[in-house]
């Protein structure tokens, strides 16, 4: 069954969507959309460095994203506005990544694949990495759910309940790094944050509790992934952008629906 590239693509999209949906809810609740963007763009630098150093791409992306998160929290503590910092890192990471890729001797890097994803080229190993990463993220979120939710609501409230809000922040950052690393192959650096934000934003009007919103976001992301793959196969369009386009269409429908709660 895994011999079929479409099946592998569907499973890859499903894995990313199931992890990105719930995590995306936190990104939306915390108004961290730009952080997701910066992380995804910086991931390109991680890929470039990994190729230059001949280490695993996954490790390179993870390392760069974690350094980015530490740099952002360190510099923002010194009074640099966070949105400015993220603007610097998002575009700086993208630019430096592209420069490093161009400097790689003899390496033929599929730049379009990195930027826009290449889900149809997902192999069995990629699939294993994607599902392991997704399972780790879902497990992490489920395990820390209460603490993450409390820290997201109010840091003082969390601390008074014995929850280290900064630790929860780090866990979210780690989860974000994992999702970015596994989603790079699927939708590419430019569109990863769409997989985080669009499903969460789409299901918000339908959700009554944080938990239902997380589950619905995962379902919505999965539907967008499967629908996007099917559509791109029929219409012969690039798959990653088609997935995001379908998600955006779902958002448009939900935005038009009458609001409740």
């Amino acid at each position: 069954m895994l011999d079929d590239f479409l099946t592998r693509a569907a499973l890859a999209g499903l894995g990313v969507a199931l992890a990105a949906g719930p995590l995306g809810c936190f990104i939306v609740w915390r108004r961290m959309a730009y952080f997701g963007d910066a992380t995804a763009h910086a991931a390109l630098l991680g890929v470039a460095l990994a190729l230059a150093l001949s280490i695993s791409v996954f490790a390179g992306v993870l390392a760069v994203v974690l350094v980015l998160a530490l740099a952002v929290s360190g510099l923002s503590a010194r009074g640099v506005p966070v949105d400015t910092l993220l603007g610097v890192f998002a575009h700086g990471g993208l630019a430096v990544g592209l420069v490093v890729v161009s400097l790689l001797p003899g390496a033929r890097v599929d730049l379009m694949g990195l930027l826009l994803g290449d889900i149809l080229a997902v192999g069995r190993t990629d699939l294993a990495v994607i599902w392991a990463g997704a399972a780790l993220v879902i497990g992490l979120l489920a395990w820390r759910w209460s603490g993450l939710l409390t820290a997201t609501l109010n840091a003082d409230l969390a601390r008074a309940s014995g929850i280290d809000a900064r630790r929860e922040d780090m866990i979210l950052t780690l989860a974000l790094a994992l999702v970015v690393a596994v989603a790079l192959k699927v939708v590419g650096a430019l569109l990863i944050s769409a997989m985080l934000i669009v499903p969460a934003a789409t299901v918000r009007p339908l959700a009554r509790t944080p938990e239902s919103m997380a589950v619905l976001a995962a379902i919505c992301g999965a539907a967008a992934a499967l629908g996007g793959i099917a559509l791109s196969y029929r219409a012969d369009t690039p798959t990653g952008p088609t997935i995001v386009a379908v998600a955006t269409a779902l958002f448009a429908v939900s935005a038009i629906l009458p609001r409740r709660g």
Binding site: W29, N154, A158, S161, T209
Partner: peptide, 28 residues
């Protein structure tokens, strides 16, 4: 055990949060 009632709490409109669920944070 400290029961803390904060000065003001802004619950972001993007987070659906019924009273019953809020009461159960962080412990059920």
């Amino acid at each position: 055990r400290i029961g803390y009632v904060p000065q003001s709490l802004h619950i972001d409109a993007t987070m659906p949060m019924p009273v019953g669920r809020f009461l159960a944070l962080p412990q059920r």
